[in-house]
Design a protein around this nucleic acid. Structure first.
Lengths: 200, 200, 200, 200
DNA sequence: TATGAATGAGATTTCATTCAT
DNA sequence: GATGAATGAAATCTCATTCAT
């Protein structure tokens, strides 16, 4: 009797998730080039060959992981932006969640840096304009909220686009900062981030 | 901001200066691993062997370039901070210069991203804690200015360290943003950056 | 000429026949090495594992297919040579059939080239001298006919062996020629082939 | 002092010729796929890396060797066809030379089979229609000579194109035959080949 | 100082074959 | 019979570095 489809699906998922986990860890830590397939395979506890059973190339694995990271990060933001709350609260929520995450775990900062590194790399950016589009969704949503908040008079006046850009630049910059400083990193005062946008 | 050129215009030796110029361009564009020695040599118009005459290894060249970048960038900031001007003006000067440079040339943003990429990469950080120290000097100087400005009552109140961190995070984030967006990039409203720190 | 189909239409087992069909197509097109087991299995619509259920190895499948090709091609010739007709007619029949087949379908030429490629490849020849023997049967039968025809005075004089060799060399060369030229291929004048042997 | 260009040229030529010699031997014997780079390098007495210093890939080496083979073989024929002799003599000369070469050394036959194998392989033929064109030059030259000979009444009548095709098919087929039969191979009567074309 | 041929270690990738179910 | 996940050996290829001149 051949294995049932469900059995194969299980095995497949388990192996794939081992590869994904190892790949993510190493790509985040070292980047696409410095992370070798041998390393990924050995960390995942599988043979190199198996990686190629699931992914056409190291780059393909990398792209999948980056896409996932971008998508899930964007989804996370979108969920918050879709809440039925006043703009002020939304901004506060985002700021708080971001700060909390950056503070409490190392992964969030790594995730942001991982995504940014991908976006900055020259040759890749041409290949995948749609992914860049998705990666920039949070920025656009933030811009909309700021405009709305400004209409309601709760937000500072100023160019909404610039404000959103600076807001996210600060968050991304902070993530890089955290990875560099490691143990020495101290989370900055939350209010400062909000004050970029909100009236005092 | 110091321009790329300054690094090698000072080098009297012509071959060395060509190596430095080519190396800088390629390391900035591709990073340490993706830039190959062959490529650097061929862009410099010299032989691979000659590169090894001047530098023990590719990494050594890389470190020298990164160190130079960090040092000259820090020197540039220090010069401004040493001016005999009130804190408010200093901050305005920095902000204006940064924005101008990021706006007017591509190199400044590349320089910042180049330095940041170096700082983030794991294995390097152990080797050169002093360079990191130097790289963080502008942050510390900014912190001091903020404290001073707060004493003079010209600056917003709040944790000076956090303010400085956010200020520079925003600038670094902006540089990354520019490299990603390329032609589509629009410089944000200058005042916003200043308002992070200054009273309105 | 035996058509490709005949090889697997005789196989009762459906899976095996699918494997044989796919293997034949790919071995003919690409040769032993370039045709991969995955490709064969996927073209056959079965799993790789199943191929190994029926055949010990890729080589075994290949040998079986080549042997079949050689055997059936030899059988086809032998049938004609066994006809109760004068030598002249037999030669004409062979020539005509060969030309017709080479002209009307692509498979015949492929078949000949497939067999020839096998015969030429070094390492294989040691393993299977008997198959080579069988493959050369048509040549020997032709030689006999020529000798007989010469005795009857219908054929040109000359070394029968040389004549047979040249006759079949021309046919094999023609097949290769057809595969190379594809659409541009034009069948040569039939009489020429016959004239190699027959008196005008 | 750097090595002079002449010195480098010498070294380069020597190494390249070692690679070319080894590659040709193995490609002829085994074909593109079965001949491995390791094997070629070790037969040439150089490192694998060096092969990649001179050739972008194994395929590139292969193509160069095939092109060379085709070009030099075509040149050889063209030289004969350009002689200021009557058509009849030219044909006799070609036939004699071919037979002599096929008889006296093993390489000639291998060369022909090597070229033919390249021409037949599917995917390659699309890539290089110009090489195929060159490879078919001897055939076209032969066709012209036959036409000329027919006008002079020295040659058999019949479609010149068909006659040329059959003539060369026979030669190619003979080469394959020689490689298969090896020691058992006997050169066929020379006159037979000529009689395909010439009046008796 | 300067060259680029040459190496060797290690990277990515392929693929026939095995195996648990 | 039948599956396709998994392996491991070997293939192709890359590249920092060395070295004779």
């Amino acid at each position: 009797m051949p294995k049932t489809k469900e059995q194969f699906e299980l095995i497949k998922n388990e192996s794939k998730s081992k590869i994904v986990k190892a790949g993510l860890k190493l790509f985040i830590e070292k980047g696409l080039l410095a992370a070798s397939v041998s390393e990924i395979a050995s960390l995942a506890g599988i043979s190199k060959g198996l990686m190629y059973h699931y992914y056409k190339s190291k780059e393909e694995l990398y792209y999948e992981l980056v896409s996932n990271a971008i998508n899930s990060s964007t989804e996370y933001m979108r969920a918050i932006f879709n809440l039925d709350r006043p703009p002020k609260e939304k901004i506060k929520l985002i700021s708080r969640k971001m700060m909390d995450n950056i503070y409490s775990d190392h992964e969030t900062a790594q995730y942001f840096v991982f995504i940014n590194r991908f976006l900055i790399t020259e040759k890749i950016s041409e290949k995948t304009p749609e992914i860049i589009e998705i990666a920039y969704t949070p920025l656009k949503l933030t811009e909309e909220i700021i405009s709305e908040g400004q209409r309601l008079g709760q937000f500072k006046s100023g160019d909404a686009k610039s404000m959103a850009m600076l807001y996210w630049s600060a968050i991304h910059g902070l993530c890089a900062h955290k990875l560099i400083q490691r143990d020495k990193f101290e989370v900055p005062d939350l209010e400062l981030l909000e004050k970029l946008i909100l009236k005092e």
